[in-house]
């Protein structure tokens, strides 16, 4: 699971208000090389929740992203785009859990696939 996907996932357990961002418990991470596309990254920049991405990357051992949400001028910086690319698309959570920030409910990630299914009494 890429951090881009993590950035799109929320907990929908009954009673949860925001359910975002899911806290990451890491058991195993992977790096997978992805072709670089500046255009794709510039487009995504506006859709990503910056704080959630920075925290997720830090949990996964990558602390190179600026803490504060940068303004769009960084999109001209190759150095920035490379880091953004790495954190968002190349860093993968292979095994671990995604934890609901409000209920503590764990959504397991197995072989890179998060299980977002809820039990009947959680819907």
């Amino acid at each position: 699971m890429k951090l881009l996907t993590h950035n799109m996932l929320t907990s929908t357990v009954k009673g949860v208000v925001n359910g975002f961002p899911l806290r990451i418990e890491v058991e195993k991470t992977l790096e997978k090389q992805v072709d670089f596309s500046a255009d794709f990254l510039r487009n995504l920049f506006y859709k990503v929740d910056w704080k959630a991405l920075v925290e997720a990357a830090q949990t996964m051992g990558y602390a190179e992203l600026p803490e504060e949400a940068p303004d769009s001028t960084v999109l001209e910086s190759e150095d920035f785009l490379k880091k953004f690319h790495y954190a968002l698309l190349e860093l993968h959570l292979e095994e671990g859990n995604l934890v609901c920030p409000e209920t503590g409910r764990k959504f397991p990630v197995t072989k890179g696939i998060p299980n977002m299914l809820l039990h009947e009494d959680e819907v």
């Binding site: 699971m1 890429k2 799109m8 996932l9 929320t10 859709k47 696939i113 998060p114 299914l117």
Partner: peptide, 21 residues
């Protein structure tokens, strides 16, 4: 090729943040 895979009931967990994307 690569796709991100998610075990979900239709799109559970994605509906909020991926709306309109």
């Amino acid at each position: 090729v690569h796709a991100e895979l998610i075990q979900a009931d239709i799109a559970s967990g994605l509906e909020k943040r991926m709306a309109g994307l």
